[in-house]
Every structure is written in C-alpha cells, then in structure tokens.
C-alpha cells in the first residue's frame, strides 16, 4: 500500500523526511512503509497513558495471552496457604479415620462370629471363655469405633463446601451405626451380667444381637459407600 509522501512527513512515518530537513535534503528513493510500520505507528498514536500503565503491569506481551486477560477474579488466581493448611489437616485426619475404620471391621466381624459362642446355641448355654472372648472383642470394637469417629468429627470443615455424592449416604448411615455402637455394648453388658447370674437373657438385653447385627450392617454399608464410587 503506497502512502503519500505528504502524509508520511506529517505522521513522521519511516520513509518520510522530517519537516525541517525537507527543503535542503537531497532527493532519496522513498522506502514505502511496511504494514508493521503502520501498525506500530497506529498502536503508538492510539494508546492512552492508561493503556501504557496497564501494559507495564503485565509481564507478557501483546502476542501472549495472560491469565489476567482471561478475566478470572484475582481471588481465584491467587493461592491461599492458610486454606491449603486447612485442607491438609482435614485430609490427614480423614485418612486416619479411613484406615482406622477399615481396621475396626476386623474385631467387629470377629465379635459377630463369637456371638453364638457367648450366648450358646442348640439349647446349650455358652461357655464363660466364649463370653469373655466376645466381650473383649466388643470392647476393642467399641474403642476403635469411637476413635475412628473422633477423627471424622474433629476434621476441620472447609467453608463454603457442600456435600454431594455417595459421601452423603456415608454420613447418613452414621445415624444408624453411631447409636447402635452406643447401645450394643450396653445391652451386651446387661446380657453378660444376666448370664453370669445364671439367668436366661431377658428384657431389653435380648435385643443385643439384633442391634449388633443392624449396627454392623450399617457400618458395612457406610464402608462400601466410599469404596464403590
């Protein structure tokens, strides 16, 4: 594109001579300004001081898109060490919760299997050893269960987060196995004392095994809810 010499002089474009030298200057073959010259001139001419200040603030050039240029709010781009610390503490506590929870299934299942040995079956009473083993496993299960629960309950909450997915089922099942884990050892202790006195299990204590099985089932479902998806 040819630009008239008058305009070149007027706009100080490369190829145009400065106005004060035009009269005495020897005629030179004129170089036509390239498109990049025109672009550079237009950019300079049309830039406001505000634009220049903005450009200086950006580390990148006009040919490189920037993160700020994508329009993300600064709060979203900027890291937050305190929040990271909170996430790490939460994660650490929940990892312990998860591992202890899995380990708790061992004495829990063992307690379920030793139940008939404590109670007796086929009309025969259970042996005192069987009762003691069952009681020991019950105490171990209860202790491990509440330690597991402690790590979940004390894990810091992340502000602004909502629960969704199967974790909601995991949390909902707490309403079944938590009371169950309080009730089962109490009923077990009553049943144990009745057996020790040579009495048949009666009253509320006869629900010990039903409550224990329901509790174990809810606990197993809670465990599966984090395993499956």
């Amino acid at each position: 594109m040819r630009i008239p010499a008058l305009w070149q002089r007027e706009l100080h474009l490369p190829g145009g001579l400065p106005p004060d030298k035009t009269q005495n200057a020897k005629p030179k073959p004129e170089r036509l300004p390239s498109s990049s010259d025109v672009r550079a001139f237009l950019a300079k001419e049309m830039a406001s001081p505000w634009d220049e200040a903005q450009e200086q603030a950006k580390p990148s050039t006009a040919t490189q898109p920037t993160l700020q240029g994508l329009g993300f709010p600064t709060s979203e781009i900027k890291g937050n060490a305190k929040e990271q610390e909170l996430l790490e503490k939460r994660s650490h506590m929940l990892q312990i919760h998860q591992k202890l929870g899995l380990l708790t299934t061992i004495p829990m299942v063992a307690a379920l299997f030793t139940g008939p040995g404590a109670k007796g079956h086929h009309g025969l009473p259970g042996s005192p050893t069987g009762r003691n083993i069952h009681m020991g496993l019950g105490i171990l299960t209860t202790g491990m269960y509440f330690t597991t629960a402690y790590f979940a309950l004390r894990a810091p909450k992340i502000p602004g987060t909502k629960s969704y997915g199967l974790i909601r089922l995991h949390k909902a099942l707490v309403w079944v196995h938590f009371p169950g884990m309080i009730l089962t050892p109490i009923l077990g202790a009553i049943a144990y004392s009745q057996f020790s006195r040579g009495e048949r299990i009666h009253g509320i204590a006869k629900y010990h095994s039903d409550v224990a099985i329901t509790t174990a089932a809810a606990y197993g479902a809670a465990l599966l809810s984090v395993m499956l998806k």
């Binding site: 994660s91 992340i158 909502k162 629960s163 969704y164 997915g165 974790i167 995991h170 984090v226």
Partner: peptide
C-alpha cells in the same frame, strides 16, 4: 467428580 469428599481430597 460427583463426590464432594473425593473432590476435597
């Protein structure tokens, strides 16, 4: 990921 707990982890 469809699970808030996994997303936080």
């Amino acid at each position: 990921s469809g699970n808030s707990n996994r997303d936080l982890h």
